[in-house]
Simulated scan of single mutants.
Amino acid sequence: MLKDRQSPLESEVSPSMRLSELSTLWFEEIESNGRAGRRTIDGYKDTYRRVISPALAGLRLNELSTGRLDRFLKNVAADHPATARHSKVVLTGILGLAVRHDAIHSNPIREVARIKVATKDVQALSVEDVLKLRAVIRQWQDDSDHRGRPRASDLLDVVNIFLATGARIGEVLAIRWQDVDLQASPATITISGTVVMERERDTYRQAKPKTKAGFRTVKLPPFAEQTLRRKYIVEQPADDAMLFPSSTGTVRSPNNFRRQWRDARSGSEYEWVTPHVFRKSVATLIDREYSSKDAAAQLGHSGTAITEKHYIARATESPDLTKALEQFAGHEVVDGPTM
C-alpha cells in the first residue's frame, strides 16, 4: 500500500499540523543535514522561542495565511525591524518543509510585504583616530589602578592584528602560532578558523572560517610583523599555542574580549568603537588607496557588494555638472583677483 511506503515524516506533516509541531521537525532536519552551523541554529531557535512561538505556535498550517503572517511581521517590525526580518527567515524555512511534503501548496510567507531595515552609515576610523585610540588603550593598560578587575595586557597587540588583517574578532582570536609565517617576506597570517561560542558548550576553535572565502593568507605590514616578533621572543610559544589565548591559555572568548575592550575605551571619545569597526576601517583605507575588490579580498568576501555596502565609509560624490551649472552665470563677469 502507498501508506506503507511513506516515511514517518511524510505521514506526519499535514494541513492540520500545528506550527509548534512542524517547527520541531524542521529544527531536527537542519540539525541533522549539517547545512547550518550551531550558532545559526541557536539563533533560529531563539527567534522562534521569543518572537514566533508566542503568536503563532498554536495555529494549524491551514490557518497560516499570507495576510495573517503579514500582519504578524508588520507588528514585530514596528519596533524591531531586524527581528522581523530574522523571523521571516525562520518562518520561510519552517513552512518550506510543509510545502516539500505537500501539506500546503505554496509558502505563504513568500508573498508578505518586504521588511525594510534602515541602513546605518558606515563608521570607520581615520589614521589620526587610530593613533589617538592607541594612546587611550596604552594608558589603560599601563594604569596601575585596576579597581579589583585584572586587565588584559595585550589589547594593543590584538588591535594591531585587527588593523593589519581586517579579520573578524572570532578569526583573530582563532589564530595559532602555526598560522603565522615570520620567515615569509612580508610576514603572513593564514586565517584558517574562527572561535565559536555555543550554548551548553565551552568556547572552542572551529577549524574553518565563517565562510569559504574567509580562508585566506594575508600579508602583514611592518608594524604587525614587529608586534608578532616581540611576542614570539617574550613568549616562546609552541606551534599549536593560540596567538591571543585566554588567561588560562585556552581559546579566548570573544565576549570576554569585548568586555575588556569596553573597559579600555570607557570614558574616551572612542566609546563607539567596537572590534568590528577595525574591519570597516581596513576596508575603507584599502578602498581609498587601492580598490573595493582588494578590500573584499582582504576581508575574505567572495565579492565586492557586501564590502561596498556595509564596510566602506565614503562620502557621496556628485557627477561633474559644472558646465550645466555655469549657465547660471549668464554673461556676468566676476571682477577682482582669482584664487
Rank of each mutant, 00 (worst) to 15 (best):
S32I: 07
R35H: 10
G37K: 03
R38H: 07
R39D: 02
I41M: 07
I41T: 02
Y44C: 02
K45N: 00
D46W: 04
D46H: 08
D46S: 12
D46P: 02
T47G: 03
I52D: 00
S53P: 04
A55G: 05
L56I: 08
L56A: 00
L56V: 09
L59A: 10
L59Q: 07
N62E: 14
L64H: 01
L64I: 11
S65Q: 10
T66P: 02
T66F: 11
G67F: 06
R68I: 13
R71L: 12
K74Y: 08
V76M: 03
V76C: 06
A78W: 04
D79A: 10
D79T: 10
H80K: 12
A82I: 00
A82H: 02
A82F: 00
R85V: 05
K88S: 02
L91V: 01
T92Y: 08
T92V: 11
T92C: 09
G93V: 00
I94E: 03
L95V: 09
G96I: 03
A98H: 01
H101C: 08
H101D: 05
A103H: 04
I104N: 05
P108H: 03
I109Q: 04
I109S: 01
R110T: 04
E111I: 03
V112N: 06
V112E: 01
A113E: 15
R114D: 12
R114F: 09
K116A: 13
A118R: 13
A118T: 14
T119G: 13
T119A: 15
K120L: 13
K120T: 11
Q123N: 11
L125K: 04
V127I: 15
E128C: 04
E128Q: 14
A135H: 11
I137D: 00
R138G: 12
D143G: 13
S144W: 12
